[in-house]
Design a protein around this nucleic acid. Structure first.
Length: 765
DNA sequence: TGGAATGATGTTTTT
DNA sequence: CATCATTCCA
């Protein structure tokens, strides 16, 4: 039992569990990763073949770390053979192996969100639909949601509930778009992110021999962050685990923050239903944070209705109280945090890497970047525009994709005329029409003499031929050259490097350097030696296999002593001694998109819980009174979440001396909350029914409340009814009484600016 | 056909 | 405010 040394009793019990289904409900900071790694080490120690262990994590980074930690216990040679990775990466591997069953090439391309959207947009255009009504973005979301619930195009069209919804929303032809989208992907030999899960389910559903094969192969299955799995993932686990029932899921319902992506807390309950005799272990001792932080976080999460009751506690010291800081503006907030980091760093001799700044949206990173840069504090931003999504990187990778899979239309379109080689819009339009007519890829329309577009000849046709010939030339080296050699060759011979080199602007230079960085990464990739097979070449195809599913967080630059900036979502699973949770303002955090239902608000609250529990020693909350959003200065109220942290855990805000008239923090908060439309606040239950708002009432109410940016119960986020435009949602208010102007979004009429004086708005209770 | 200039449009969170 | 997309001109 030496594998279980150093664990507490609960951890030991969970990690020592060998046969049969089990579930670990693990509070934040309670050592669930420890349990997972030690359990796997223990399994191997008990003679389980690493090849038969399937361990699914949420990020590649988590997988890599876990592998390393297991390696340290049982040795790298054993650890290396475990099937460990994200759902997407593991099943992409399996799909490549089994691709011919579902009539896909094994070198299928994985389309990222950009690619998918572009296809959706094309299909919408092709059907002659209005892309104002059929917004590619939201249609893609709808399709993605369907796939995550294992609803294919056929099921979608046949499902009267769904069709009814679409009809209701005035978009009855989504089913057609879905079908067209799917056909286009198929034709391009491409799968989108959702397909990786969807098609895996198809494999397991339609091919009993494959189901049997992988059931036998994966004798032990472990799933981390189970609370964030969606239905498609749930079904994969259920299918694969059905034969042996050696399924272990680990999760914390309080940290479920991905329902927007189809994650379903219900999966935890389903698990217990599917395996009635599953063992349940609870890890409740937090080793990470101070008492103050743990208890503050407990108090916050207790306000949620939907939860599995847990009693998370810690034996750690009480520690410092949580600071709350009010900033005047977003820049001011950046300055405050940067200064605080400097001060703390020298006072406690802390390192840069001990600090994290966590925000709700990527767009908030800017002020912090600026202020940190000003003070020469090294930082690293995670997420946002990932390295691999940058134009120049995607361009080069599109060449790679096209070389590996010529049917990849998105890749084709992207690079056919970059660098410019005289293939313009007209040419491409004609080619696209021909491809559609023959139901083939763009590539085939060029290469297959039977499908040649009649209206293309002469110079344009010659240029297309030249282009495809060039790409074909690259493809001949696909199996013989290393990823780096071929990649570098392509970057040069397409003229892409030359093109980038011409641009001497700072941005242009940065782009060139990015490409160099990508190539450097490929060199490293190419030179890795697999001890089991030292002579194997790492080809461009192998490289592409990884690259589509890599995210920015997976990149490592040597120097890791940097302040971390990231969204709270990206921070899940991480911990830092000092954590700054910033932008705690109504409509930002909680997001204004999440104020409509209790469920949405509770997810925001869980997000806040996740943020708080990242902190080991000290947490600091901050908000800004004004902030630029959409290029406009917006006034903000402090987030309700600040109030939800009991005062006993807080150092209430240090009012900024520069502010001319100090505002009473609590007064400001209470006036605001009186106007909150809904939510589950106990202090001021929402008034039932509909309230008529006359101009005078609006003025009077606003006068009484004294809040600058709200009026008579009308506040950002409130649903209102307008005589002409119908139902809408208030986005923002500006101006002084009595000339308060509201920006309201009406689904039917679009965004309107209305003067409350004149517009008769009814609040929808 | 290519590039610049202008105009519309959109922001949550991610594999 | 950014990015994108379309439009317009060389």
């Amino acid at each position: 039992m030496q594998m279980l040394e150093g664990l507490n009793e609960a951890q030991k019990a969970a990690a020592g569990h060998v046969e049969g289904p089990m579930m670990v409900v693990a509070g934040a900071g309670s050592g669930k990763t420890r349990v997972l790694t030690h359990r796997i080490a223990h399994l191997i120690d008990q003679g389980v073949d690493p090849f038969s262990i399937l361990s699914l994590t949420f990020t590649n980074k988590a997988a890599r770390e876990m592998k390393e930690r297991i390696g340290r216990i049982v040795g790298d040679s054993e650890a290396r053979n475990i099937w460990m990775g994200t759902f997407h990466s593991v099943f992409a591997r399996i799909l490549r192996i089994e691709s011919e069953r579902i009539n896909y090439p094994s070198n299928f391309t994985i389309y990222d969100t950009q690619d998918s959207r572009s296809v959706v947009k094309d299909v919408i255009k092709g059907l002659g639909l209005d892309d104002k009504l059929y917004k590619p973005n939201s249609i893609h979301g709808r399709i993605s949601g369907a796939k995550n619930n294992l609803i294919g195009p056929g099921d979608y069209a046949a499902n009267s509930d769904i069709i009814g919804e679409d009809h209701q929303a005035g978009r009855p032809r989504i089913a057609e778009i879905y079908a067209g989208y799917d056909a286009r992907l198929k034709r391009s030999g491409a799968m989108d992110f959702d397909d990786l899960l969807f098609k895996t389910n198809v494999l397991l559903r339609d091919f009993p021999d494959l189901l049997h094969k992988y059931q036998q192969k994966f004798a032990f299955i472990l799933v981390d962050e189970y609370q964030d799995t969606n239905f498609a993932q749930y079904m994969i686990i259920r299918q694969l685990g059905a034969a042996r029932e050696n399924v272990c899921v680990v999760g914390d319902d309080a940290q479920s923050i991905y329902s927007f992506r189809g994650a379903n807390i219900q999966n935890i309950l389903n698990f217990q239903r599917d395996y009635p005799d599953c063992a349940v272990y609870k890890l409740e001792q937090n080793y990470r944070s101070t008492k103050n932080i743990v208890e503050a976080a407990n108090a916050v999460i207790a306000k949620n209705q939907d939860q599995i009751r847990k009693d998370v506690w810690t034996g750690n010291d009480a520690g410092e109280k949580i600071d709350v800081h009010r900033a005047l503006s977003d820049n001011d907030e950046g300055g405050f945090v940067a200064d605080a980091i400097l001060t703390t760093r020298s006072r406690e001799q802390a390192h840069n890497k001990d600090f994290a700044i966590l925000y709700r949206t990527n767009a908030q990173s800017r002020a912090f970047e600026e202020q940190l840069r000003k003070r020469n504090v090294p930082y690293r931003i995670y997420g946002g525009l990932s390295f691999y999504q940058r134009k120049e990187i995607k361009d080069l990778i599109s060449y790679f994709r096209l070389v590996a899979n010529p049917s990849d239309d998105e890749g084709f379109k992207r690079v056919v005329n970059y660098p410019a080689r005289g293939i313009g819009k007209t040419t491409m339009d004609r080619l696209t029409v021909a491809a559609a007519r023959h139901d083939c890829s763009l590539w085939d329309a060029v290469r297959d003499p039977l499908r040649k577009p009649e209206d293309l000849k002469g110079a344009a046709w010659g240029k297309l031929q030249d282009f495809t010939t060039m790409v074909e030339g690259f493809a001949t080296r696909l199996d013989s050259a290393s990823a780096f050699d071929l990649g570098h060759h392509i970057a040069q011979h397409t003229g892409l490097l030359r093109e980038l080199h011409k641009d001497k602007t700072p941005e242009g230079v940065a782009r060139y350097e990015n490409v160099e960085e990508l190539l450097a990464g490929m060199k490293e990739f190419s030179e890795q030696v697999d001890p089991a097979n030292p002579d194997a070449i790492h080809t461009l195809g192998d490289f592409l296999l990884d690259v589509a599913l890599l995210t920015d967080a997976d990149q490592d630059d040597g120097d890791d002593n940097k302040v971390s900036l990231m969204t709270i979502h990206a921070a899940k699973g991480l911990e830092f001694p000092h954590v700054y949770i910033v932008g705690l303002e109504e409509n930002l955090f909680p997001s204004q998109m999440a104020l409509n239902t209790r469920e949405e608000l509770e997810e925001e609250r869980r997000l806040f819980y996740v943020a708080l529990t990242r902190a080991e020693k000290k947490a600091t909350l901050s908000y800004a009174l004004t902030r630029y959003r959409w290029g406009q200065l917006m006034q903000n109220e402090p987030s309700r979440f600040i109030e939800e942290v009991d005062d006993q855990y807080l150092n209430l805000p240090v009012v900024n001396a520069r502010r001319p008239e100090p505002v009473n923090f609590n007064a400001a908060r209470s006036t605001f909350y009186k106007q909150m439309p809904s939510g589950n606040r106990t202090a001021t239950p929402p008034k039932p029914g509909m309230k008529k708002l006359t101009p005078t009432a609006a003025g009077a109410a606003a006068d009484a409340g004294g809040a600058p940016a709200s009026s008579g119960g009308i506040a950002p986020g409130v649903e209102v009814q307008h005589a002409r435009f119908g139902k809408g949602k208030v986005l923002k208010l500006e101006g002084e009484i009595p000339n308060v102007k509201a920006t309201v979004f009406f689904p039917t009429a679009g965004q309107k600016q209305l003067l409350l004086k004149f517009a008769k708005l009814e609040i929808l209770g």
